[in-house]
Simulated assay, not measured.
Amino acid sequence: MLDLDLLPILIPAFVAGLLVLSTHVVLGRQVLKRGIIFIDLAIAQVAALGAIVSHMDHSIEELPFSHVWMPALFALVGAGFIAWLSKRFADELEAIIGCFYVLSAVAAMLLLSNDPHGAELLKQLMSGQILWVNWSQLVLPAIVSAAILALIVMKPQVLDGAGFYFLFAIVITLSVELIGVYLVFSTLILPALALNKYQGKGLLALAYVVGFVGYIAGLILSATYDLPSGAAIVAALAMSAILMRVFLSMKASKTASSLSN
């Protein structure tokens, strides 16, 4: 049974999840549309690499907000590189992005190989520490998420051009800081994949439902059974996406059967 004393921890974590979902559901659909599934992993890993470089260089680490602007700088450079690649190697883009991710991950491992706290830092960046998010950490992501959503609403064409990659880099940088690389990837892809074949109304709303259910179920499972929060939420998101896809498939079959009769 859920311990109500954990609510002061769970509520900020859930709000962090909602903030991430607010932008990732929209961007995830664009990722599937472009067929560049690995871009979120690649950019998230590059942002994590920036955080590691900041950690390794104490002169950078001591600068104000280096934990934000250093990963953002790496992510923006990575996004610019992928945007350049998309115009010149479109037919091989997904494979190159996959290689880009692997090279970034290897670079992170090499940089931390002699750091006594390297394994812990790498685990934190990959799996995230969503349960330890506090309200002050949510201020900047909330402002940036609201600004990006407003831009998308006012100028939806921004998602079709190269500007998509730079918006993506900014969003991913903030998300990795809050929830880690694995959960960033799952939040982008699973709600979008759940609705990928759906042609009816309320597509975005249903995608948000998938994410909402996944986050709240994952956090409750994590708190109740003392499970790693990131892994529990990823598993819950996957189950939520599968159930939504099965439900919509059954609904479509039922509708088709009714029409044929």
Rank of each mutant, 00 (worst) to 15 (best):
L2C: 08
L6K: 05
L6T: 00
L6Q: 00
I9Y: 02
F14Q: 04
G17A: 09
T23A: 15
H24F: 02
V26G: 02
L27G: 05
R29M: 12
V31R: 05
I36Q: 07
F38P: 01
F38I: 08
I39N: 00
I39V: 13
A42G: 08
A47W: 02
G50M: 11
I52R: 07
S54Q: 13
M56E: 14
D57A: 15
S59F: 06
P64M: 14
P64R: 14
F65Q: 15
H67L: 06
V68L: 11
V68Q: 01
A72N: 03
A83H: 03
I97F: 10
S104W: 00
V106P: 12
V106M: 15
M109R: 03
L111V: 04
L111R: 01
N114L: 13
D115M: 03
D115G: 05
K123E: 10
Q129H: 15
I130E: 00
L131Y: 03
V133Y: 01
N134S: 00
W135I: 00
W135F: 07
S136W: 09
L138Q: 04
V139K: 01
V139G: 01
L140K: 12
A147G: 10
L149D: 10
V153T: 11
M154D: 08
M154S: 13
K155M: 06
P156G: 07
Q157E: 13
D160F: 09
A162H: 12
A162L: 14
L167P: 11
F168P: 11
I170V: 15
V171M: 12
T173K: 09
S175H: 06
S175Q: 09
E177S: 04
V181S: 08
V181W: 01
V184S: 12
T187P: 05
T187A: 10
I189G: 04
A192V: 02
L193G: 08
A194Q: 06
Y198V: 08
Q199M: 09
K201I: 01
A205Q: 08
A205F: 06
L206F: 07
A207F: 00
Y208F: 14
F212R: 10
V213I: 15
V213Y: 06
I216K: 09
I220R: 00
I220L: 09
L221A: 01
S222Q: 03
D226F: 06
D226P: 02
A231P: 12
I233F: 01
S240L: 00
R245F: 14
A252T: 10
A252P: 00
K254I: 02
K254W: 07
T255Y: 07
S257F: 07
L259V: 13
S260D: 11
